[in-house]
Write a protein that binds this DNA or RNA. Structure first.
Lengths: 349, 349
DNA sequence: ATTAGCACTCTACAAGAGTGAGTGCTAACA
DNA sequence: TGTTAGCACTCACTCTTGTAGAGTGCTAAT
C-alpha cells in the first residue's frame, strides 16, 4: 500500500485538527473539515488504511484517531518542505521581539534569559537556550597583585568572554615580577586555543620562568581550569510550568520529572551537542522517541542553532507536547535566530 | 475562654497528627493517640471550643478538624521555644551534608546550588538560597588594554568578589596612560564603598585626569554599574517540583503559579530583605497569609539568614505546605547554616 | 465535669443506566 | 471498482442512586 495524494491530505487534516483540539479526531469531522468532498464512510476506509500503515492510531476502540510519531514526522517534513523559504505572516506577530531584544544588551546572560522568557510566553511551551560556545582562543591575559598574598588572574577569550580567578600565593612576590610574568604569558599564549598549548610551549614558558617556575606552573593550571570550565555551557530555561497546561503531559508524575529535567539542565546538553541537522536552516525536530533525552519521550522538541561567528554557536530549544504547533514554533525560532544574529553582530563590531 | 493546658495539648496533638497524615483529624483519633485519657466526647467538646477560638477549623460538617494558620502559629512558637538550644538527634541524620559541602568548594555559586539541592532532597520541599550580600568595598581595581580599542576593567571587592567589563574605546590610548590611570584609580578609590565615593572624590579624580577626563568619567560609570549591579543578589532554587508532591498545593493551577514564582526568582527577594527576626537564631517562620509573597498564601515558608562576616549575609529558605515538618526543617536549616559558616570561614582565611 | 449513646450530616466509592461519538461491515449505487 | 448509506456494536463519559464510614452535636446518665 502506498501513501497517495488523498491519504496524505487526510493525514494532514487529522494532524492539524488534533493539534488544535487535542482530542482524537473522527471520520465525520474530517469529512466536513476538508475540501475534498468525501463521505465519512470513505474517510473511515482510508483511515483504516492509514492506521495499518502506522501513521495514526486509536487510543481505544470506538474513539477517533490520533497521529503516531510517524504521522507527526511526515506532517512536519511536509510542512518544512513547503515553508522552506517562505516568509510567514507570523513573523510580524513576534517582530516586537526585536525591540525587546535589542534594547540594552549589556549582559549576554541577561539577553539569553530574556530571550528564553519571551519565547516561552510567545509559544506557551517550555524553552531552553544555551549560551554560545566560543572557540576559547586566548586573546589577552592579565595578572595583577591584589594584595601581598593574592594574585588576580584574568583571561580574556575570543568573543570577549572574560574569566577570572584569585590565587592565594605561598610566598610574596613583587610588582616587577608580576609585570615580567605578564609579558611572558602574553607573548607566548595570546592567540592560542587550549588545544594548541602543548608540551613544547609549556616547557618554553617554564624554562623562561627561572625562580618562579612553581608560580608559573600554578598559573598555567589556573588558566586551564578557568578556560576549560564548562561554565559557558550554561543553559537557561523558562516557562517550564507551561508543561502543566497540557493534560497529556501534566498527568501522573511525569510532569514533575519533566520539569525536573528542565530544572537540572544536566541532560539538556545532549540536545545541544547532538544537533546534526544537515539542512541549512539549523532546525531539528525531535518527535517522541526521537529525542535524546530520556524523560521527554512524550514530548516533541524543536531545536535550532544560532551562529554568531564561525564556530561560535549556541542552541535554542522548545519543548512541548507532541501536538505542538510546529509551524508557529519553527517561525518563532527563525525570528529569534535572526534577532540574535543582529544583536550579537552589532555587539561585536 | 482561655487556652489552658489541656486545650494546648489537644491542639498540639491535632497539629502533629495532621502534619503526618494530611487528613482532617477526628476526636476519636485524638482520644486514642494522646496520653491524657479522655473519651472522644470530651475531646469533641474541647475541639468545639478550639474551633470557636480560631485555632482549628472544619473543611466541612462531619469532617475532622485541621489547624488554622493561628493554630500552626501557636504550635510553631511552642515548638521553637522548647527546642531552642537543644541539639536534635536529626543533626546526625543530615551530618553527611558536611562531607558533601566541604568537598571541593571552588565556586561559591556551585556551593550554593548544591546546598539548595541537598536541602531539597533532604526535606522534600522546595528550597531557595541567596548568595551572600557583600559590603561592596572596593579592594583593588585594574584597567588593562586588551587590544587597541578595548579596555578591560576589573574590580575586586571585599570578600574577593570579582567583577569585570569590557569597554570599547572611542579613541586610542597608550599603555603608559593606562598605567597612570591605574595608579590614579587605585590610590583614590581603594577601600571605599560605593556610598563613600561622593562628589568630592569624583571631582578630585577627574581633576587629575587631564586630557583623559572623558575616559575617566566613563570608567567611573562602569564601576558604578558593575559594582551596583544586583547580580550578586542571585537566588538559587531547587526541588521546585517537590511542590507537586503535596495534593493541597498541586491542585488547580496554583501549583504552576507557585513554581513560576520560584522560577522567576524575582518575588523571592522580598523573603530575603524582609527578614526581621529579632531572635538570635535568625530563623523566621511565615505561615500562610504571613508570607510577603503573594502566591504563597497556601504555603509556609521558613527562612534563616547565614552570616559569614559582619554584614555579609545571605538567606536560605524552605517553601512547603502549611503542614510541613517544621521541626525537621528548622533543624536542617540550622545544620546547613553551621556548615556554611565553616566552609566560608575556611575559604576566606 | 465526664461519658455513653443516638441521630444526623457529609464524603467517598461503587454500581448501574443512559448518551453520544465513533467505528466496522455489508449492501446498494454510479 | 470506487463511493456511499445504513445499521449494529463498542467504548468512554456522565449522571444518578445506594451504601458504608467517619465524624459531629446533643442529650441524658453517671
Amino acid at each position: 500500500m502506498e501513501l497517495d495524494e488523498r491519504k496524505l491530505k487526510i493525514l494532514k487534516a487529522i494532524v492539524r485538527n488534533y493539534l488544535e483540539t487535542g482530542e482524537p479526531v473522527g471520520s465525520r469531522t474530517i469529512s466536513k473539515y476538508t475540501d475534498l468532498n468525501l463521505s465519512s464512510a470513505t474517510i473511515r476506509n482510508e483511515m483504516s488504511d492509514l492506521e495499518d500503515m502506522g501513521y495514526i492510531l486509536q487510543p481505544h476502540t470506538s474513539a477517533g484517531r490520533i497521529p503516531s510519531d510517524k504521522g507527526y514526522r511526515t506532517y512536519v517534513d511536509d510542512m518544512m518542505r513547503e515553508k522552506a523559504d517562505e516568509i510567514s505572516q507570523q513573523q510580524q506577530e513576534i517582530s516586537d521581539m526585536k525591540d525587546f531584544l535589542t534594547e540594552k544588551v549589556e549582559k549576554v546572560e541577561e539577553l539569553l534569559q530574556n530571550t528564553a522568557k519571551l519565547l516561552a510566553n510567545n509559544t506557551n511551551y517550555a524553552t531552553m537556550i544555551s549560551a554560545p560556545r566560543f572557540a576559547k582562543r586566548i586573546k589577552f591575559l592579565q595578572l595583577s597583585l591584589v594584595d601581598d598574598m593574592s594574585l588576580l588572574c584574568v583571561v580574556v577569550l575570543d568573543g570577549n568572554i572574560i574569566k577570572n580567578k584569585l590565587v592565594k600565593l605561598s610566598k610574596q612576590i613583587d610588582a616587577e615580577t608580576v609585570l615580567k610574568l605578564n609579558i611572558l604569558f602574553n607573548s607566548t599564549l595570546n592567540g592560542l586555543t587550549m588545544e594548541e598549548i602543548n608540551l613544547g610551549i609549556i616547557t618554553k614558558i617554564t624554562g623562561q620562568a627561572g625562580e618562579h617556575m612553581e608560580l608559573v606552573k600554578r598559573v598555567l593550571e589556573i588558566i586551564a581550569e578557568v578556560v576549560g570550565s564548562d561554565e559557558d555551557m550554561k543553559i537557561y530555561t523558562s516557562g517550564t510550568t507551561n508543561i502543566l497546561k497540557y493534560p497529556e503531559l501534566s498527568d501522573n508524575n511525569r510532569a514533575s520529572e519533566l520539569i525536573n529535567v528542565l530544572e537540572e539542565k544536566q541532560q539538556l546538553t545532549s540536545l545541544i551537542t547532538e544537533n546534526n541537522s544537515e539542512e541549512n536552516t539549523g532546525i531539528q525536530v525531535y518527535i517522541g522517541d526521537e529525542t535524546p533525552v530520556q524523560n521527554m519521550k512524550d514530548c516533541s522538541v524543536v531545536t535550532m542553532t544560532y551562529e554568531i561567528e564561525d564556530g561560535v554557536q549556541g542552541t535554542i530549544g522548545i519543548i512541548g507536547p507532541k501536538r505542538m504547533d510546529y509551524e508557529k514554533v519553527v517561525e518563532s525560532l527563525k525570528t529569534v535566530k535572526g534577532q540574535l544574529d543582529v544583536v550579537f553582530k552589532n555587539n561585536n563590531e
